[in-house]
Simulated scan of single mutants.
Amino acid sequence: MADPSDLLQQLRPLRAPPPDGATEVLLMALVGCCVGALLTLAVLFWRARRRRLRRAALSALASARALPATERLAAQARMLRDLVGALDGGVAHSHGDSWLTRLDAIFATKLFSEGEGRAFGDALYRPRADDPSETLDRALQKLLSRLDR
């Protein structure tokens, strides 16, 4: 009988079957899913962060609804001051017609200089016979819903 070492020498080396590409395809699919998930999270985070001012303003407007009419109008005016201060990066110092014009420019409307929004100008500090806070509440809610920040 032949020596076992001679028999081992006669054996051919084992070869792996040719790759079918499934591993690479699965790896690429996994990487694609991870990239897609990261992009989705980034977009969701960006949108949530971008609309933070609008949510805060709408929340302040909603909390002002429970106040009496005079306090409600003052709370709406305070919300507008805070919002404009946050948008411009500082404290909103203007008043009167320049303040109303600035509000019109920010919201792209004529509500403040020509409509009911004049109540947030110098009329805010005068006694009023009527209560514009309900109509102003609806108008402000509509304007804030269009705000993209």
Rank of each mutant, 00 (worst) to 15 (best):
M1Y: 02
P4A: 07
P4L: 06
L11H: 04
L11A: 13
P13R: 13
A16Y: 06
P17L: 12
D20S: 11
D20R: 09
G21K: 03
G21L: 06
T23V: 15
L27E: 15
V31E: 14
C33K: 08
V35N: 10
T40L: 15
T40A: 15
F45M: 11
R49S: 10
R49K: 11
R50M: 12
R52V: 07
R52S: 12
A56Q: 14
A57C: 10
S59M: 05
L61P: 13
R65N: 07
A66S: 14
A69V: 11
A75N: 07
Q76W: 07
R78V: 02
R78G: 05
M79C: 06
L80P: 06
L80V: 13
D82C: 10
D82I: 07
V84W: 03
A86F: 00
G89R: 03
G90N: 02
V91R: 11
S94K: 07
H95N: 09
D97R: 14
W99Q: 01
L100V: 10
D104E: 04
A105H: 07
I106D: 04
A108S: 12
F112P: 00
E114Y: 03
G115S: 05
E116W: 08
G121F: 00
G121V: 01
D122H: 06
L124D: 02
R128T: 05
R128N: 08
A129Y: 03
A129S: 10
S133Q: 05
T135P: 01
L147A: 00
